[in-house]
Design a protein around this nucleic acid. Structure first.
Lengths: 134, 134
DNA sequence: CAGTATCCCATCAGATACTG
DNA sequence: CAGTATCTGATGGGATACTG
């Protein structure tokens, strides 16, 4: 149920800490592994955006889902949500320093992906071809 | 439906490539964002393991799920699966060079998590406390 | 404009039992 | 030993319509 905690694995090669409910790396993977969080981070790096602009910048995200994503990120301290007392309403989303710092691991993933996606796709094609021969 | 591709976002700030079905970063996030792949990578860094040993090393993963994970990783060229013609059967799982290289972005995530998990948890506590006051 | 409210589905993941 | 088969539930994500 609970998984090994990466911290102890990487640092000391210890046995699984089965009763650790909040493995740091698991927390982060659950967040940036979702569909939209990393795109939100990248799109807000240049400065704050309001809801509709952000949604258009990302593309293809339903308003409900974007709201969920932004609320979760706000809760985690990754961004600030600022409601301006205007009509029509204006809400700005801006990364915190913590949120901006998340671009480092995201960039590491993007870099790896760019460098190796052709290898992955070749491997998939080969694997699938081998299975088709039967 | 299809999301913006990270490549064009990061490199050129272009508009969403809505019809790109295989955004490299999306492919990678879908893989390492799952529950077990990154733990498999970390546990195989020191050398090959057979199924049951790997399962014990990771801890808490059902055999069906581990098999799914390993098959997907094999298909992506991240590891080799070697069946020895013995009784009882012996199957070794060993990372490829590609699989080992994946430890770089995984490590970037782990590092970020270790460095900032207290910030995230503090933000969560604050957020939840603020909501409870009503 | 910035969301909510509903409904819905696919997928992931786990539990459990069984097998070549 | 190294899986497969089956069932099940949780959750993430999406479509659509509506509202303060």
């Amino acid at each position: 149920m609970t998984s090994q905690c990466y911290k102890y694995l990487v640092v000391t090669n210890l046995v699984p800490d089965v009763h650790n409910p909040a493995c740091p790396t698991r927390v982060v993977l659950d967040r940036i592994g979702d569909r939209w969080t990393s795109l939100v981070v990248l799109n807000l790096l240049d400065g704050p955006l309001r809801f509709t602009r952000l949604r258009a910048a990302i593309g293809g995200v339903a308003p409900k889902v974007l709201t969920q994503t932004l609320r979760a990120m706000e809760r985690d301290g990754l961004l600030h949500r600022t409601v301006h007392a205007e009509v029509p309403p204006r809400v700005d989303y801006e990364l915190t320093a913590l949120g901006r710092s998340l671009s480092t691991p995201i960039q590491a993933i993007t870099d790896w992906a760019e460098a190796h996606v052709t290898d992955v796709e070749a491997a998939r094609a080969e694997y699938d071809a081998a299975r088709e021969d039967r």
